[in-house]
Simulated scan of single mutants.
Amino acid sequence: MGAVEGFFERVDAGRFLATEYTRGPWDPGAQHAGPPAALLGRAVEERSDARAGMRIARITYEILRPVPIGALEVATSVLRAGRGTEVVEASLTPAGGAAPVMVARALRIRVAEEAVPAVVPGPQVPPPGEAGAVPFFPVPWEAGYHTAMEARFTEGAFVELGPGTCWMRMRVPLVAGEEIRPLDRVLVAADSGNGISSVLDYGRFVFVNGDLTVHLHRHPVGEWACGIPYRRGRGRHRPGRCPAARREGPHRAQRAELVRRSAVVRAPGRRPCGLDGGLRRRRGWVGDARRIDCSGLRAGWRGVRHGRITR
């Protein structure tokens, strides 16, 4: 583990410094979307004007551009406040930046004090104690999201074709020196849904999500979050869904809009390059937003060695 035990260091109430544990598998300077998503979720809940007796029922993220590893500023605003609901927006902007890189809109609902009828139980999966720890897919750097999270599959694996069921647990807190909250555990793992199951061959297709929506059916509890078989829609631009559970039962459902494209790219003056392992599914945005620079890839190496995502 690194010198700072946490995904972020708190500078003050609205400023944070991202650590190496936020690093994703596709670019050494960009974060995995899970930690910043959890940071925005916490900002919605801990803001000074947050009303007691309410919880997040849904939170939708717009991932506008890669989230850099560095100093970040968080801002929140209430878009609508009613007697039983409120809508809160939270934004994440690089320090000194002119525009946010991630924006979240959360629907908070009033929590009823009286008892409510039990709901039909969702999918039941073996507990994490019955599954062994497994490494993440090959990543070309030592520290990052893949070392800050523990993963245990009860079905499938990161690099296996087909449905997968995976328990995930944080090894470090969201903010160094601060207690891990149940919502942190859910949101840190939420963006990993399209990484635990593969319906199509990652050697031919990659899937990139520009948004993420998490529905919370109840207060999350416990230290493990479980992603249950991820379902991708058919077609070029279709949503994927990933229900999730705790040992006590289902607590959320995730939805992300995925964009499919070919997994083979060509660099000028070089033969086509394919990204092996789990890295192939998170190579970057499609179209004009981001592209992969393959000039530093070494043929035959499993994963990105010197390649990087460029604007």
Rank of each mutant, 00 (worst) to 15 (best):
A3L: 13
V4A: 04
E5M: 06
F7V: 12
D12P: 05
L17A: 11
A18R: 05
E20I: 09
T22D: 08
G24R: 00
W26C: 11
H32F: 09
A37M: 11
A38S: 06
A38I: 03
G41C: 01
E45G: 00
R47F: 01
S48M: 05
A50R: 05
A57V: 03
R58T: 09
E62A: 12
R65E: 10
E73Y: 01
V74M: 05
V78I: 07
G84F: 12
E89I: 01
S91A: 12
G97Y: 01
G97H: 01
A99D: 06
V103G: 00
R110M: 06
E113W: 04
V134S: 14
P138Q: 00
E142R: 15
A143N: 13
H146Y: 04
T154L: 15
A157I: 09
F158A: 02
F158N: 02
G164Y: 02
M170Q: 15
R171K: 13
L174P: 00
E179Q: 15
E179D: 14
R185D: 07
G193H: 14
T213K: 00
H217K: 09
R218Y: 00
I228F: 07
R231P: 02
R232D: 08
G233H: 03
H237R: 09
Q254H: 15
V259G: 08
V259I: 08
R260N: 12
A263I: 04
R266Q: 07
A267F: 10
R270D: 15
G274H: 14
D276H: 11
L279E: 12
L279V: 11
R281P: 05
W285I: 08
V286I: 14
V286N: 13
R290N: 10
I292Q: 10
C294Q: 05
G296W: 07
A299R: 11
G307A: 15
I309W: 07
